[in-house]
Simulated scan of single mutants.
Amino acid sequence: MDLQPSFSFELFPPRTPEGVAKLPAAISQLASVGPNYFSVTHGACGSDQDGTYDTLLTVVEHTGVDVAPHLTCVGSTRANVARTLQRYQEAGVKRIVALRGDLPDNARTPFAPGEFRYASDLVTFIRQTCGDTFKIEVAAYPETHPEAGCPDVDFDNFRRKVEAGADGALTQLFYNADAYFDFMERCEKAGIDIPIVPGIMPITSFEKTLRFCTSCGADLPRWVRLRLEHLQNDRTALLEFGLSVVTRLCETLLRNGAPGLHFYTINHAEPTLRLWNSLALTVPA
Results as ranks from 00 to 15, higher is better:
65 V>S: 04
69 P>N: 14
73 C>E: 02
76 S>Q: 12
75 G>I: 11
102 D>S: 14
87 R>T: 12
70 H>Q: 07
102 D>R: 06
80 N>M: 01
76 S>N: 03
100 R>G: 09
78 R>M: 14
90 E>H: 08
77 T>E: 00
88 Y>R: 08
88 Y>C: 08
101 G>T: 07
78 R>K: 13
68 A>K: 06
76 S>R: 06
86 Q>R: 00
79 A>L: 07
73 C>L: 07
100 R>M: 05
69 P>R: 05
73 C>Q: 08
83 R>W: 13
85 L>T: 15
84 T>Q: 07
79 A>I: 08
68 A>S: 12
72 T>C: 10
71 L>I: 15
92 G>C: 01
101 G>S: 10
78 R>Q: 14
71 L>R: 06
70 H>G: 03
86 Q>L: 03
80 N>W: 11
71 L>E: 03
101 G>R: 05
98 A>V: 04
74 V>P: 02
100 R>P: 10
74 V>K: 02
68 A>L: 08
66 D>S: 09
73 C>S: 06
73 C>A: 03
84 T>G: 10
72 T>K: 12
77 T>I: 06
85 L>S: 02
92 G>Q: 00
83 R>Q: 11
96 I>V: 13
99 L>D: 02
74 V>N: 01
103 L>M: 10
68 A>N: 10
92 G>S: 05
79 A>E: 13
80 N>I: 01
88 Y>T: 10
67 V>P: 00
103 L>G: 00
79 A>P: 05
74 V>R: 08
79 A>Q: 13
73 C>I: 06
90 E>T: 08
83 R>L: 14
96 I>T: 11
76 S>I: 12
76 S>K: 05
102 D>A: 14
75 G>S: 09
94 K>Q: 14
65 V>D: 04
68 A>P: 02
87 R>H: 10
101 G>N: 03
93 V>R: 00
101 G>P: 02
69 P>Y: 01
77 T>Y: 05
88 Y>H: 09
72 T>H: 01
67 V>C: 00
99 L>R: 05
71 L>G: 10
84 T>A: 14
73 C>D: 05
93 V>G: 09
102 D>P: 14
101 G>I: 05
97 V>W: 02
88 Y>A: 12
89 Q>A: 12
98 A>C: 15
87 R>N: 06
93 V>A: 05
93 V>I: 05
99 L>Q: 06
80 N>T: 02
81 V>G: 04
87 R>K: 15
